[in-house]
């Protein structure tokens, strides 16, 4: 092959490569349109002044007004907020406590916890929902006669499906979520700080409060927000476990089945905005480095602890890892 014929082929090949690259980029753009256009259209049409779902007839807040004044919407919203808050609190408290301790369990127990967490993640929501439905109803059928028998007054409370069973279901995935987030963060963390704190005669409780938790704070908050949005948006678990209680996604679902109605777009938009804002907040806290402010009071605290204690030399070697982390934080 002569050099003269080589150049054109190379050029042609590069041209073809550019064409392939360009069409890949165009394709990616189309997929992003596909992902965002439907949601954007729902948001856009929630501001439509007309009843028509095809034409945009002008900007108005009518449908927000209508949804906001609907007592059913408000009740569902309040239920959803209660459920989401309760399950996120449960998920955060239990999940954090478990994530902190799981490192110190025996390998067998660690595996049991890992299997339970894995199960909570892979189990289809529909299976979890209907299992909880069965368990709650059967327990209530067994317990209600006893309650009525033992209750001192006349109207004994009746157990059954309701907000509590929804909370029970939503918090299962929430706990697994918080534990996963925190274990990932703990794995990145330098445990020499905790070791140093223990060397300096801090009690385990004090180490937890002053060393471990400040470093985990943002991850805990991020996990809380993720668990909250999951429970707030979830449809299928609530669908099976709610009994007579209404939640916002379920109200939305039943009005969608009755037919398209512009106030659905308004409620949907509110849900989208709340979720996206919460997600951005969670991402902000989860990707943030360990707050630098936490490292400084920590230094003061440990030095005052060593002052109280005659075994001060321990402060010398312990300081190095702290400085190392402080450097890591500042970069």
């Amino acid at each position: 092959m002569s050099a003269a014929s080589k150049v054109p082929t190379a050029m042609r090949r590069r041209k073809r490569r550019d064409a392939v690259d360009r069409s890949l980029a165009v394709y990616a753009g189309l997929v992003y349109l596909f992902l965002f256009v439907p949601i954007v259209i729902v948001v856009l049409f929630s501001f439509n002044s007309g009843r028509h779902v095809t034409q945009f007839e002008g900007f108005s807040m009518t449908w927000y007004d209508q949804a906001w004044n609907d007592p059913m919407v408000l009740e569902a919203l309040s239920n959803s907020l209660q459920i989401a808050t309760a399950s996120a609190v449960i998920a955060t408290v239990f999940g954090t406590a478990a994530a902190l301790a799981v490192r110190r369990l025996s390998p067998t127990t660690q595996r049991v916890v890992a299997i339970l967490t894995y199960l909570a993640v892979v189990i289809p929501a529909i299976v979890l929902g209907l299992s909880i439905l069965l368990a709650f109803v059967m327990f209530a059928d067994w317990a209600n006669p006893w309650l009525a028998y033992l209750w001192p007054g006349d109207d004994a409370p009746e157990l059954g499906l309701g907000k509590l069973s929804v909370i029970a279901g939503e918090s299962i995935f929430g706990i697994a979520l918080v534990m996963t987030v925190l274990q990932a963060r703990l794995a990145q963390m330098d445990d020499s700080l905790e070791r140093a704190s223990a060397d300096l005669y801090a009690t385990p409780w004090r180490t937890l409060r002053q060393v471990t938790l400040p470093q985990l704070g943002s991850a805990i908050f991020g996990g809380f927000v993720l668990a909250f949005t999951f429970a707030f948006d979830d449809f299928i678990i609530a669908f099976f476990t709610r009994g007579q209680s209404q939640t916002l996604p379920i109200l939305l679902f039943s009005s969608i089945r009755r037919g398209v109605n512009p106030s659905i777009n308004a409620i949907a938009t509110v849900l989208v905005v709340v979720t996206v804002l919460a997600l951005l907040l969670a991402l902000f806290f989860l990707t943030r480095r360990t707050p630098g402010g936490a490292a400084l009071p920590l230094l003061d605290d440990t030095s005052s602890a060593s002052r109280e204690d005659p075994a001060a030399p321990a402060a010398g070697p312990a300081r190095t890892p702290q400085e190392r982390t402080a450097e890591k934080v500042s970069t």
Binding site: A97, A98, A101, A120, A135, T207
Partner: peptide, 30 residues
């Protein structure tokens, strides 16, 4: 860190495990 009292830390996994058992394992058994 074996120094940090093991019993308290084992106990703090208990609520999550109990929650999983009561609201996931038991319903699946049912």
């Amino acid at each position: 860190m074996p120094k940090l009292i093991p019993r308290a830390s084992t106990l703090s996994t208990a609520p999550a495990v109990a929650w999983f058992v009561v609201f996931m394992v038991a319903p699946l058994t049912v």
